[in-house]
Design a protein around this nucleic acid. Structure first.
Length: 193
DNA sequence: AGGAAGATCTACT
DNA sequence: GTAGATCTTCCTA
């Protein structure tokens, strides 16, 4: 398994978000491994992005977005933990939100964590996938570019797919550009449009 | 102390 | 398919 190197994340968030599609999110739980293909992401910037956690300036809770890239940045919204990966150019601010994955390994454990039978409903949303993979604030700040971490992102299979874009979901004040990216036709994308 | 937050579930028309 | 209640944390007053 090849883990994506740290410099993968040291680029424009929108570019990182787009290229994360098709990559494999790997969650290690003791001896168990849960994994899924990333099928939907969104990019967030810093000061000039009203929807960003970093919009109001650097605080303790959003500090990660200002620091090293390639770290998991996790926070709670509406009783759901949302998983972001810090990604931005040098000395800039930003992160990529993982919105949906397609389950590959450890589906039975995900079922147990989510208490849902239907596979399609297991990880097809940002709050759903964190629950299925047992991700909480405990994992905040984990280095996903490090192969020994309990949360990493690995190179996926070589395959081609069409990438769709749209405006970000649930955002009050969105930017003019489309910053949501998803694999066209994939059943695990949270919403269509 | 209060409210807002990048969502989800349920119960309907 | 769509609307509305409600899930929990952390910031801001």
């Amino acid at each position: 398994m090849k883990v994506l190197p740290k410099d993968f994340y040291e680029r424009d968030p929108a570019l990182v978000a787009k290229e994360l599609l098709g990559k494999i999110l790997v969650r290690r739980l003791g001896s168990k491994v849960l994994s899924g293909k990333i099928v939907e992401t969104e990019a967030y910037y810093g000061k000039n992005d009203p929807a960003s956690r970093a919009y109001t300036g650097r605080k303790i809770f959003n500090e990660l977005m200002f620091l090293d890239v390639g770290k998991a940045f996790i926070y709670m919204v509406h009783a759901n933990w949302l998983l972001n990966i810090v990604a931005h150019l040098k000395n800039d601010v930003g992160a990529v939100l993982i919105r949906a994955i397609e389950p590959l390994e450890g589906i039975e454990i995900m079922r147990k964590n989510r208490k849902v039978e239907e596979i399609r409903n297991l990880t097809s949303g940002p709050g759903k996938l964190t629950k299925a993979l047992a991700i909480t604030k405990e994992q905040n700040g984990i280095d996903v570019a490090e192969i020994s971490s309990e949360l990493t992102i690995a190179e996926g299979k070589m395959e081609s797919f069409e990438i769709g874009t749209s405006h970000r979901i649930g955002v009050k004040n969105d930017l003019p550009q489309e910053l949501r990216f998803f694999i066209k036709g994939n059943k695990f994308v949270s919403k269509f449009s």
